[in-house]
Design a protein around this nucleic acid. Sequence first.
RNA 1: GGGGGUGUAGCUCAAUUUGGUUAGAGUACCGGACUGUCGAUCCGGUGGUUGCGGGUUCGAGUCCCGUCGCCCUCGCCA
Length: 593
Amino acid sequence: MRSHTCGELHRENQGQRVTLCGWVSSARNHGGILFVDLRDRYGVTQITFDPEAGGTPPEILEQASRLGNEDVIRVQGRVALRAEGQNNPNRCTGEIEVFADQLELLSKSEPSPIDLSEKNETSIETRLRYRYLDLRRPSLLQGLAFRSKFCHALREHLLGQDFIEVETPILTRTTPEGARDYLVPSRIHSNKFYALPQSPQIFKQLLMVGGVDRYFQIARCFRDEDLRADRQPEFTQLDLEMSFVEEEDVLQVVEAAVVHAFKRCLGIDLKTPFPRLRHEEAMERFGNDKPDLRFGLELVDLSALVARTEFKVFTSALEAGGCVKAIPVPEGADLSRKEIQGLEEVAKEYGARGLAWCKLGDEGLSGPVAKFFAGDLQEELIERTGLKPGGLLLFGAGDRTMVLRSLAEVRNALGKKLGLTPEGEFAFAWVTHFPLFEWNEEKQRFEFSHHPFTAPEDWDVDFSKDTEKVASRAYDLVLNGWELGSGSIRIHRQDVQQRIFEFLGMSPEEAQEKFGFLLNAFRYGAPPHGGFAFGIDRIVTLALGLDSIRDVIAFPKTASAACLMTDAPSPADPAQLEELKIRLIPKKEEAQA
RNA sequence: GGGGGUGUAGCUCAAUUUGGUUAGAGUACCGGACUGUCGAUCCGGUGGUUGCGGGUUCGAGUCCCGUCGCCCUCGCCA
């Protein structure tokens, strides 16, 4: 149907007779001569309808004058070099044009609800409703192409490392821990439900028991939780698992795959090895477990020092068992009161009561808390924080978890504000040795912080002693302050698994009921194994310098998990419900009516 | 479930401190002019239940109450 695409004709094609197909992206009619920008996935080529210089039959020019934006056409003509001064340097096809002598209207378009000229940005709502039009925008199309290439590179690398790509079920059983499941009713087994997988976790471990040795999958995962810019109800992970390995083996494989993909798709040589931080070190230095390592601004603990001040906010925080930390900001004294107030708002969002601060000038400290640091204390503070004249010090005081959390967010806001987060810089990092357990305040008990099969760092550790500090063999991959994914070395020893369940107050019967098929499998010789999974949507978003994973998903859902294009979810037909033996509970207002 | 933002022409936005005539502009679309444009230009035109429902008022895009969609976010989750 076509001899070339709209992105491939150049100077060398001069004089060739070609046939092109595509969408009319703009038509400029000058009366006796008419230009059409013809667009397809590959680019834009200018089609010129010119009876005199171009040999366009007058009736074809007449036909072309009726073309509208987004009409789909097929044209035939001759490639010609443009005259001096008529080149368009913004386009790779800008040195040539095609003089058309034949035109075929393949499909007429109504006016587009989306402004594809990108003169103004159409609202995300309209874009999602008409996603098939939105996709025509080069940036979105290129995003999809990049994603495809990225996945290909990962596949290519892992297949070269003896991994086997295996598909695991989408219809599976509900799992008790973790996120809320999407449920699918069973027709054959009435009153029973499948669940969509939150991840292929258990299946991949069973593949290890099955001797697959090295597995990977680009797997769709489903979680029925509330959405964010970096979270969709269905998302894609590169999931992998390996037998007879330790942390080092897994980390190296993942790292090499990422390095390969970045090289292949962006031409970037990532620095290896990625920095590694133990979990407690990341928390101490950056306040969270997914630090943005593109910049410093590390936290400094000042608890011991400020215990000697008279500042009630600090001393009472310490008396209550909390801590006082600070972020020294070089050159931060340039920030205005208002800007600091903005940072305080950030801190408050995460539970801080306020954000104390002081500045260091040539004549010592100034600002709200300066007066509490006199003489020796002032000198010690300056020494301890490394503050230089022109610097700013931001304090967080109170409950340790809250201080870390709020200062971590203040740090991120500062990084952005001070221009320390340049696009095109990729700061990967591993965070290792996550705690095995986590205190659940609501339920007043310990829970798995990763998942039930994560191995403890020490097989023989006593879980009851310093429970919160018991380290696991779980690790996360972090990029520019985003958590990309996580993994762990798993428990292959029944005795250890049993001890953990026992410690969490789960009876053998309960464990059997919840995870029976996996525990049973482990009775028949389970190889030591471990693995990893990271979010494809997220890594591709970051690689392209975008803000939302929506931009790399063809048909994303809204914040309320709806699809505006298909109008999913939708009511079910009563006959379908009948067949599934499902009766609906009316909403409150309907019940009252 | 909570907080913040937002909703006006197909699209992107405006509409005067504190309510006041016929709700405007750009773009798109339609018609006309135009032989080198590439955000073409020039002239003319169509296009509105101001998200929806109620209320206050002589009068509501504007004020009040409710409700819905979308975005960001807390909780939740990865």
